[in-house]
């Protein structure tokens, strides 16, 4: 008998909140081996196998179809692959893990209050310094798409995998694109978000993979699971597969 594979963040606050979100609709996720185990079960749904993975791994595996559905952020889906968002269905926002992907730049740039200012600055910077304006980020795909939509072409991305907010001070980049939930890290680093500088408002979502190979049997198992979150959630997700 086949079963469907549900991936849940493996640790910390995201794991807790994920299990709470499922418990709230009557689905208790058990992790028999405790934090050291990477497999779990749901008593009410014996056809579902639960795997515990990191949120970014969940995003990658949903896109490639190695897992059927999982809990992860939209930002991570975008970052895992440029057209990744087309390979999945966002079935249900889960109301936790809220964070924005934003453009942030030094407070001392008093001439920049909106994204359109940044277009001028990027252009000027290249002519004045003979170099590209540098943007530090781990959100390469989102940044490219957003900057292109704002007509900003004169810049280069510096990939940053941690402490991105320090890049302007360390001289690694002139500005950043980063995720922020409270804004306090930006504030502490004297950075501000210009108007239209919010690229994506992300939160944890229940996400279904389109590429996972949906037999009739798996579809009905999926429908059963999603119905716990409401009939409309199940219908619209299955309709988009």
């Amino acid at each position: 008998m086949s079963s469907i594979l549900l991936a849940v963040p493996s640790k910390g606050r995201l794991e807790e909140a994920s299990r709470e979100a499922f418990a709230k609709v009557g689905l208790k996720i058990d992790r028999p081996g405790g934090a050291r185990s990477y497999l779990g079960t749901i008593d009410a749904l014996p056809d579902v196998t639960v795997r515990f993975l990191s949120a970014s791994e969940i995003a990658r595996e949903l896109i490639s179809g190695k897992i059927d559905l999982g809990i992860t952020g939209e930002d991570l889906i975008h970052e895992a692959a440029e057209t990744g968002i087309d390979q999945v269905v966002i079935a249900k926002p889960l109301n936790f893990g809220q964070a924005d992907v934003v453009v942030a730049l030094p407070n001392s740039w008093i001439d920049v209050t909106a994204m359109r200012d940044l277009a001028d600055v990027a252009s000027d910077y290249r002519h004045r310094h003979g170099q590209w304006l540098r943007v530090a980020t781990k959100y390469v795909n989102l940044t490219r798409r957003y900057f292109a939509a704002h007509g900003i072409a004169e810049y280069r991305i510096v990939e940053s995998l941690g402490a991105t907010e320090a890049a302007p001070a360390s001289g690694a980049a002139e500005l950043i694109v980063d995720i922020t939930s409270s804004g306090s890290t930006l504030k502490a680093n004297e950075l501000k978000v210009p108007q239209e500088g919010v690229i994506l408002q992300s939160e944890a979502n229940l996400v279904v993979s389109k590429t996972a190979g949906w037999s009739d049997e798996k579809r009905s198992q999926l429908e059963k699971l999603l119905t716990y979150f409401g009939d409309s959630v199940a219908q619209s997700a299955l309709g988009s597969l």
Binding site: D111, V121, E190
Partner: peptide, 16 residues
Amino acid sequence: AAGLSPYSGRQAEEIV
């Protein structure tokens, strides 16, 4: 004060 290098990036003159 923000720890920005005075030798790289946008200079105060160009901002003003």
